[in-house]
């Protein structure tokens, strides 16, 4: 018999992530400093969970904003209007989450919905007929490696392909099933490369 948890809170036991992001949005801390805060929070969580004697730890349950958005972002499911802003990857991610109004353009945020029957909200990924699903991100791997370097083999977590398709919005003529083959293809190298 083993023990595990499906995911752990990520905001920080004193909401450190919230305060760090607010500072980042006001440009009083850099992307690197924000990343450093996030890394410390993940480290603290690993310490708490493994310290309590839990056998298997998840990873990639951390997020700057939302894990559904993270999975979409990892797989290049990013509408053109955000890419056209030509922002850094992190700022493009935040533009999807919060909207962007600045010298690079003016776009509203992606839609946000209640996560099932909870008071948590997820960002609704948006597909259109030009959506080119492919593995472009590294977050899930980076966070696995970070834990591995700290001596813990974690169980990476992603929103599964089915739930991802079911929760997304479709702006073009293509339907969820039309994306199934490319989505599988994008997720396969990930599972293949993971271990071999």
């Amino acid at each position: 018999m083993k023990t595990t948890v499906i995911g752990y809170p990520r905001i920080g036991s004193h909401r450190e992530l919230k305060f760090a992001e607010q500072k980042y949005f006001k440009q009083t801390v850099s992307a690197d400093e924000l990343a450093q805060t996030a890394s410390v929070l993940r480290q603290e969580n690993r310490g708490t969970v493994s310290g309590a004697g839990i056998d298997q730890l998840p990873s990639n349950d951390f997020s700057y904003y939302d894990t559904t958005l993270d999975t979409a972002f990892l797989l290049n499911i990013v509408p053109k209007r955000y890419k056209d802003l030509n922002l850094s990857s992190l700022d493009e991610y935040f533009a999807e989450a919060r909207g962007y109004q600045g010298d690079k353009g003016d776009v509203t945020a992606l839609s946000m919905k209640k996560w099932f029957n909870t008071n948590y909200h997820y960002i609704v990924p948006e597909f259109d007929d030009d959506t080119d699903i492919k593995l472009v991100g590294t977050k899930v791997f980076d966070e696995f490696k970070e834990a591995k370097n700290a001596g813990i083999t974690t169980r990476p977590v992603l929103v599964g392909p089915y739930t991802l398709l079911k929760l997304s919005a479709y702006k073009g003529s293509k339907r969820p099933a039309d994306f199934a083959a490319t989505l599988v293809k994008a997720m396969m190298p990930y599972s293949v490369n993971w271990l071999t």
């Binding site: 499906i6 977590v157 992603l158 929103v159 599964g160 089915y162 271990l195």
Partner: peptide
């Protein structure tokens, strides 16, 4: 990388 498990969340199934 040496992962043993990967967790794919599929709450839509409920």
């Amino acid at each position: 990388l040496g992962a043993e498990w990967v967790q794919l969340d599929e709450p839509s199934l409920v």
